[in-house]
Design a protein around this nucleic acid. Structure first.
Lengths: 337, 337
DNA sequence: TTGTAGGCGTTATCAT
DNA sequence: ATGATAACGCCTACAA
């Protein structure tokens, strides 16, 4: 029974007990400790009890590193989001965590908003996981990932990693029909500004409206905050007093829009109809509840986790057509339209 | 240069390259590979380049297990929440992740809602982390944690693990004063039902009102959903038509309350004032914006992460007075009161 | 039923 | 500047 490590020097942070410590304390071999800890057969109940008692006394916890080294089963996913404070991301995160949990995988969640350097963030996360998911782009340092499986949300066609593509066109067509059916004649688009051009969804809205003989004016805002949405709506009221529908580029902006309309005493949907994009739960908290194009978040999560786990298992290539999936939006009509 | 493992049998999932593979490929020793990979000094630039090239070619990624075994620095936190779909938790999670990131710790987020068995959930998370944080109670299986550092949110006095206590009394007193100042004479409490008794916050509200000579009636609802809040408010309108203020047990319920009031055509805050509890960002999305008692989520996260990391480092005891912190709420007056 | 021997992938120490 | 050797904590085979 020799002292473990250097005889407890001073106030060192008390090193964790190892399997050897337990074995020594219980007067058995390491192997017997393993058998006792892991509910394995072929061990004398009395011995087992003695070992477990020793383990408890020494506060023994098996090291995940030692174990991981011997049974290298991938079990941890990294999810990178912008900011959990933006209601979109928690819904995605929840769905991803749920899908991962089904396969007993854990999820490390990282937020870009807390990182000083996005490349470093991704690198640090990558070092702790068996696959990465997220709204990632080249500027996040995708190149540093090496062979680590990676799934990009809203993935552009030529991506070098796996991805989930988001298909909103059919749902947008439904929405346009819906608005026109309800008598809309002066639709306006509230878009986010890549100055000079439109967002993909915005362009789609405009194109569809044009097919029906309307040419919606566009107001653009700087960022995706609710305040920006509110300001954008105020601008619309001023520039386009004839407006009878506002299509917002996402639910948050639509939320700001509703706020401005309420303050202006404008009835929704009576005078102006409002539609959002994303399908956040937030939309049901509002009053009137928000009509929106809802992403199938569950579907996105299932696709992404499926791809990631498949890649980690070596069953799906890291990139190329087999590394891609497509998920749709659907029209959810609520009170605001 | 011997073949690694058994010469690539059939379509096995292609084992990851190890440091040995890289060393062999580059014609150097493992140690030199380590030096090259880890930006260590004392290596010939040419050698380094050759090693890095080999590593890239073989898609070598250092194993976190191998590394963790040698440098056993704790680096991963487990955060257990009920459900990220409830807007309270993402705000907490974001704050925790931010605090953890400051110390280069990662956070595994787990949701009870996705677990069939809460004990199993906690056990699985515990196995992957160096400390656990969460709204946990005995029924989650706190006993299985052994010596793993654990911090409980809203921790009850006698807890056997570390904890953060939430102190709302002073802020509640402020709120009561505020309401009375604004002319409230018929306050009503919308509480969640532990049938027969009141929630801590509810009791506090009632007690304070009584000190001022008012005796608020109480309406209780089943769960913490917005729908329940809306229903509770409807009940209040019927049972207490004289009500001129509703204190809801949380922001979600307050949200439902606002909805019912709007539909009933009741002006807020003109006819009835509404206050919530938690201080969610959600409150600012609503219209009118919600007056609320706001928890200092950042403070909670800082306290919890501080305790957890201190425990993991062996500088703070696992339980007892030194394992506890206290964080306050503050009154945030917005439009609804 | 229990113990012995070996190796998982990495880094640190000490030679060379 | 580079390499050899020895851990780290755990599990699986095999031997006793």
């Amino acid at each position: 029974m020799k002292a473990r490590r250097s005889a407890t020097t001073r106030t060192a942070p008390a090193p964790r007990a190892t399997i050897n410590d337990v074995a020594t304390a219980a007067g058995v071999s390491r192997q017997t400790v393993t058998r006792a800890m892991n509910e394995m057969p072929g061990i004398n109940p009395a011995t087992k009890a003695r070992v477990l008692a020793a383990a408890k006394r020494l506060r023994y916890r098996p090291s995940r590193f030692g174990r991981g080294l011997v049974k290298p089963e991938p079990r941890t996913l990294g999810l990178v989001v912008d900011d959990l404070t933006n209601p979109y991301y928690p819904e995605l995160a929840s769905a991803v965590i749920g899908e991962a949990a089904k396969q007993s995988w854990n999820v490390i969640v990282a937020e870009k908003v807390h990182a000083t350097d996005r490349r470093t963030l991704l690198l640090e996360v990558a070092g702790q996981v068996d696959a990465v998911l997220g709204y990632l782009n080249d500027s996040d340092g995708l190149d540093q990932l090496g062979d680590l499986p990676c799934i990009q949300f809203d993935s552009p066609p030529g991506s070098t990693v796996g991805g989930v593509e988001l298909d909103f066109a059919p749902a947008m067509a439904e929405l346009v029909d819906h608005l026109l059916d309800r008598g809309v004649r002066h639709p306006v688009l509230l878009d986010i500004s890549p100055p000079g051009s439109l967002s993909g969804r915005g362009q789609c809205f405009v194109d569809l409206m044009r097919e029906h003989g309307f040419d919606p004016p566009v107001t653009q805002v700087i960022d995706n905050s609710m305040a920006a949405g509110a300001a954008g709506c105020a601008e619309i009221l001023q520039d386009h007093p004839e407006a009878d529908a506002i299509m917002a580029f996402n639910d948050i902006a639509a939320c700001g829009t509703l706020k401005t309309l309420r303050r202006a005493g404008i009835d929704v949907p009576g005078q102006i109809k409002v539609a959002g994009f994303d399908g956040l739960g937030l939309g049901t908290y509002l009053s009137p509840e928000l009509t929106t194009l809802a992403l199938d978040v569950q579907g996105v999560a299932a696709a992404a986790v499926g791809l990631a786990l498949g890649m980690a298992a070596g069953e799906i290539p890291r990139s190329g057509p087999k590394a891609r999936r497509r998920v749709s939006y659907r029209l959810v009509v609520r009170e605001s339209s």
